[in-house]
Amino acid sequence: MEKYDLIIRPKRHAFDINFKEIWQYRDLLRMFVKRDIITVYKQTILGPIWFVVQPIMTTLIYMVVFGRIAQISTDGTPQILFYLGGITIWNYFQESFNTTAKTFTENANIFGKVYFPRLIMPFAKVTSGLIKFGIQFAFFMAVYLYYLFTQEGAVQPNWSIALLPVYILLMAMFGLGTGIIFTSWTTKYRDLTFLLTFGVQLLMYASPVIYPVSSIPEGTMRDILLLNPFTPILEGFKYAFLGAGHFSWTSLGYSAAVATVILFLGIIIFHKTERNFIDTV
C-alpha cells in the first residue's frame, strides 16, 4: 500500500480535527492579527481613542438611567467603576462574538480561493480583540487607580485579581464558541443574522453587567441568574477589583465547564460546516 500525505474524502469524523495543522499555520494567525491592527490604525490619528469613547458614553448613560432614575444598587461601589468594569469585560465577549460570528460570510472570498484551517480566522479575531480590550481595560484601570488612591475605602481590591487572566480566557472561549456556532448556522440560514446584535443585547441584560446579583431578590429569579454562566465571571471580576460581589470556586468551575462545552461544540459544528460552506454561502 502506497503512502499518501493527504487524502481528500467526502466525510470526516466529527472529532477528526487536525490541531497539528492549525499549529503549523500559526504564522498565518499572527499575520491576520497584524492585518486587523494595521487596518484599524492606519490613517486614523485618534485610532485607539475611539475604543474608549464607547465605554465612556455607555457608562454615562447607565449612570443616568440605571443609577439615577431606576436607582439600581451598585453594591455600594462607585457607579462609574461598577458600570465601566462591567462594560469593559462584557465588551470583550461581545467583540469576540460579533467578529467571529461573521467568519464565513465575511471571508467567503478568501475561503473560496485557498485552503487553510478555517479555525485560524476566528482565533485571530479573538486574539486581535484582546488589543481593543487592552485599551478599554487600561482606561478602566486609570479611573480605578484614581478612586483607589483618592477615595479611601471606595474600592477594596483583593487577591482574586490574580484570576483576571482566567476571566478574560473564559470570555474569549464564550465569544469564540458561540460565534463559530452562529457563523456555521448563518451560512445556511441567513436570517439568523438579524438575531445577532439583538441577541447579544438581550444576553447582556440577562447577565449581571449593570446590576449586581445582590440586587435580585432571593428566589427563582436569582436562581435563574446564577445559572447564567456569565454570572460568575462578571461577579468575580467586580469582586476582584471593587470588593463587592460574589465569588466562589464552584460557580467559577461551573462557568468554565459551560465555556469548554460550548467551545467544543462550536469547533465540531464549525468543522462540519467549513468543508462545504462554499457551495451554500
Partner: peptide, 30 residues
Amino acid sequence: SRVTSPTTGSIKVKGRLASLLEVGTGFHPE
C-alpha cells in the same frame, strides 16, 4: 484545493500541493 469537499470518491496526494485559483489572496490595500 480543498475549498470544497467531494460528494463521493477520493483524492490522494503525495507531497505539498499548492493551488493558485487567484493571485494575491488576502492582500490588503492598506
